[in-house]
Amino acid sequence: MKILQVVQSAYRTLVEEQDDTIIWLCENLHCAGADISVLLTGNASFYAVQSKTQPGVRIGDWVQTQPADITRDLANLAEFNVPVYVIKEELAERGLLEKPLLPGVHLMDRRDLSGLYDFFDQVWQW
């Protein structure tokens, strides 16, 4: 069964979990044997071009030592050969189209979205 994981909410609890929880879940689903692909959409499109680790947060004397690293997490998906897609128009709307995509991220036109959805047995919208 082929499943498309649509990640739309960006930076959701990134500090507390030290990753994007859905990207992390995708890594684990793949390792558990799931046949998945990932579509970064909406504000999560930014993940496709992000090149820096999140800054560590300080709360009182507590200092974060392992902030989220989206670049690493997407590199893991690439290493697993999990396809990751991002929509060209959504990058353009955010002024990100000129930035280099992370390895393993595929750029697609919005008009091809319905065809992508048709390719999968299920679409999970996060």
């Binding site: 500090v15 507390e16 979990e17 030290q18 947060v57 709360i59 009182g60 004397d61 507590w62 974060q64 030592t65 392992q66």
Partner: peptide, 18 residues
């Protein structure tokens, strides 16, 4: 130990101490 996962209970204590 390496992950040093954030816990909100520790943040509260840290703020109280501060």
């Amino acid at each position: 130990d390496e992950e040093n996962h954030p816990l909100t209970k520790n943040w509260i204590t840290s703020l109280r101490d501060k």
